[in-house]
Simulated scan of single mutants.
Amino acid sequence: MARWFNTTGIQFHRPWKHHHEDSDGKQQKRRHHRRSLSEVISTNRRYVQQYRLLHEIGSGSTGVVHLAIDKKTNTQYAIKELSKSRLQRQQKNDFLRLTGSRPCFGLGVTSRQESLGSKEDDEQQNKRRRVAITPTVNEIKVLKLLDHPNIIQFVQAIDDPESDSIYLVMEKAEKGAVMDITAFNTTVKPYSQVQCHEYFSQLVNAIDYLHEQGFVHRDIKPDNLLLTRNNTIKVIDFGSAIHIDETYPLPSTTSAGTPAFMAPELLRRRDIKQKQLKPPPPTATDIWSMGITLYCLCYGQLPFEKPSLLELYDEIQNKNIDHPKNIDPNLTDLLNKMLTKNPFERITMEEIKAHPWMIDKKKNT
């Protein structure tokens, strides 16, 4: 599905590592391939209910993605296998990060009184909690509420009670990610402005719909935009998405998202003065990530690249983006407005749709 890469030990891309297939259909692993998580969380099972697992096509922080076929209909699907234990750890860490609480025993338990009693009692209670806990798969909750031609279609979820796995069955996008962009590598061949407009317009439609439903994606990037056989964009990976009303204002310095695509306001530490300020629009972070994505599609490289996270964060917050020569001034204007450091001054979705670059390119297609 989507991908990630490492440069000098720094992880810039978080979710799914992708393997390409050559013209003969043979799988080719990407460079810098780490140990597959299928070796960690998967059994050697070949079937999940009516789906036969063919081979792994991606891996990420909580599981792996399989190419699968429905033995009843012969239809191919992408099945995302998630690790319950890893999801539990992530959710506990996110809970502690937001509340500042320290855990006692079990997931989300923050009251010291609950840990009182004998050591044996505590161990028994903790064992019962582990058995009873079923992690909340945020991606399932979000995808069930969405229905849009540019958002990956969710088919079903399968919880295997006998293993550590939860399976998310989704439609397959045949062409894979729209662009393989990596830091400090040779510039990827960019798309033409006409093609960029076609793909970006579909992304705008998808994220505009998502925002109308009250969600922010929080991890928009080329790796999370898949292409179907007829070049339809499909936005994937809603594991970091949240409902705006649930955690507004959005927390800063969160683990969600990919560092190279994160907005400046998410990288700033909270202080007393910031707490007194009006919180920025929650959708502004997605606008920023969409701007970085458009930059990649048009220029074939990332606008911010540094060998360490601290340097990268500093560059994102302080450096202005560079543009190649002889570029459409309307495109540079749109990118500059989407990548405005101040979220209150950043262009909105409605303004993007009405921008001259969007309108002019639409007239010429």
Results as ranks from 00 to 15, higher is better:
residue 66 H to T: 07
residue 76 Q to V: 14
residue 107 L to F: 01
residue 78 A to P: 06
residue 149 P to D: 05
residue 123 E to V: 01
residue 113 Q to W: 05
residue 151 I to R: 02
residue 126 N to W: 05
residue 115 S to F: 02
residue 116 L to Q: 11
residue 171 E to H: 12
residue 83 S to D: 11
residue 120 E to M: 00
residue 173 A to I: 03
residue 195 Q to C: 05
residue 98 L to T: 13
residue 105 F to S: 04
residue 165 S to R: 00
residue 85 S to E: 14
residue 190 P to R: 03
residue 135 P to M: 07
residue 90 Q to T: 12
residue 98 L to R: 12
residue 121 D to T: 09
residue 108 G to K: 09
residue 138 N to R: 09
residue 93 N to M: 13
residue 113 Q to H: 14
residue 86 R to H: 04
residue 178 V to F: 03
residue 168 L to C: 07
residue 141 K to A: 12
residue 62 T to L: 09
residue 180 D to M: 02
residue 120 E to Q: 12
residue 137 V to E: 10
residue 86 R to A: 12
residue 58 G to C: 05
residue 141 K to T: 15
residue 175 K to A: 10
residue 180 D to F: 01
residue 189 K to G: 07
residue 71 K to L: 13
residue 189 K to T: 15
residue 159 D to T: 14
residue 113 Q to F: 07
residue 86 R to G: 09
residue 106 G to L: 02
residue 172 K to Q: 12
residue 152 I to M: 10
residue 189 K to N: 13
residue 193 Q to I: 14
residue 67 L to V: 08
residue 110 T to S: 11
residue 155 V to D: 01
residue 152 I to H: 04
residue 84 K to A: 04
residue 63 G to F: 00
residue 81 E to R: 00
residue 113 Q to C: 05
residue 184 F to A: 00
residue 130 R to C: 02
residue 85 S to T: 15
residue 67 L to N: 08
residue 125 Q to W: 00
residue 115 S to P: 10
residue 117 G to Y: 00
residue 142 V to A: 05
residue 172 K to C: 12
residue 82 L to R: 00
residue 134 T to E: 14
residue 108 G to Q: 09
residue 107 L to D: 02
residue 118 S to T: 15
residue 81 E to A: 12
residue 155 V to N: 04
residue 64 V to S: 09
residue 129 R to T: 01
